[in-house]
């Protein structure tokens, strides 16, 4: 096993929100202690419902936000804000919304060259242009697109441009923050195929954030299921999809639509709402909605345990 390219331990990110005039400020625990390793050339998928901290994790790993606590090691370097500038070239991100992530005032050529202008000051203008044109080709766009503005492209093409921009600095890690959830299903598969192809060719590691399990099933190597800022289950894709052990993962999997009308459908319907991240329950965060919960669950939060198939539950399934 090679050394992991990204290593996170107990990564946490809290936000302080000011209440009203009289109420005291509250802390939103968007991310409270997540560990993971990401191997070069592999895809780690993070799944969970809205508000579980997936995007916060993406922003912390991309060095947009500083973690409140915990440590993050990228390519052997312990990340602190002073190292951000030098590590930019290693980690790049593709955002969810391709309509907001491209500067509407810049032509595609300029958008692609910008990372080079900032980070490779000694590169000549001709070299930069050549590199940008090569990248346009690599992501499956046509040469004449070089001089166009983002508004002239469809969502799928824009996402290709966003991927091309992320690859301009030859990163080793690409954080994909729901890269296909804003696209049509037919376009989704094109973009996913492109990502798979690029991964093979460039040996990229992907941190793939998604709430769409059918996409994850095709795309990921390992999966982490998150609930309210914590990892509740972590396993290789095959194991997780075959035998989910955490009740939440099981419920999540049961909601994935299947194309087989013969298959018996046992959809688990969860009661209640996601607890507020400002007021996380003392015990297991999922206990309020879990059909297996006992008093023990509500007392203290369970830790991830196990070897290849890790689960944070006192009453694991299977």
């Amino acid at each position: 096993m090679t050394a992991p390219i990204v290593q996170a331990s107990a990564l946490a990110r809290f936000y302080t929100v000011k209440g009203g005039l009289l109420s005291k400020p509250a802390t939103v625990k968007a991310l409270s202690g997540v560990d993971f390793d990401l191997q070069p050339g592999k895809t780690l998928a993070i799944v969970g419902e809205s508000g579980c901290g997936k995007s916060t994790l993406a922003r912390v790993v991309t060095m947009i936000e500083e973690p409140t606590s915990g440590s993050l090691t990228i390519d052997g370097v312990d990340i602190t804000p002073s190292k951000w500038a030098q590590m930019r070239e290693t980690v790049q991100i593709v955002f969810q919304d391709p309509y907001g992530s491209l500067n509407p005032r810049q032509r595609i050529g300029q958008i692609l060259q910008e990372p080079l202008i900032i980070n490779r000051r000694d590169m000549s203008a001709a070299d930069r242009e050549a590199r940008a044109r090569e990248m346009i080709n690599l992501v499956g766009l046509r040469p004449e697109h070089y001089d166009r503005y983002p508004h002239m492209f469809s969502g799928g093409q824009r996402q290709r441009i966003a991927i091309a921009r992320a690859l301009m600095l030859n990163p080793k890690v690409l954080v994909l923050d729901e890269p296909v959830s804003a696209l049509d299903v037919s376009i989704q598969s094109q973009i996913l195929n492109l990502l798979v192809e690029l991964q093979e060719r460039l040996n990229l590691a992907y941190l793939f954030i998604s709430h769409d399990l059918s996409v994850v099933k095709h795309f990921a190597d390992d999966v982490i299921v998150m609930y309210l800022g914590r990892a509740v289950e972590r396993a290789p894709k095959e194991l997780l999809f075959a035998t989910p052990r955490h009740p939440y993962s099981k419920a999540l999997l049961s909601t994935t639509p299947r194309a087989d009308p013969e298959a018996r459908k046992e959809r688990i319907k969860l009661e209640g709402e996601l607890p507020s991240p400002m007021n996380i329950p003392k015990g297991c965060a999922f206990a309020q909605r879990c059909w297996l919960a006992t008093d023990e669950c509500r007392a203290a939060p369970p830790e991830l345990s196990g070897t290849t198939h890790q689960v944070a539950c006192l009453h694991p399934l299977g």
């Binding site: 991309t62 060095m63 947009i64 500038a85 930019r88 790049q92 991100i93 955002f95 992530s101 500067n103 910008e114 990372p115 900032i118 980070n119 966003a162 921009r165 600095l169």
Partner: peptide, 8 residues
Amino acid sequence: TSARVAGA
């Protein structure tokens, strides 16, 4: 944000 990620 992406310009910031690019190091601007």
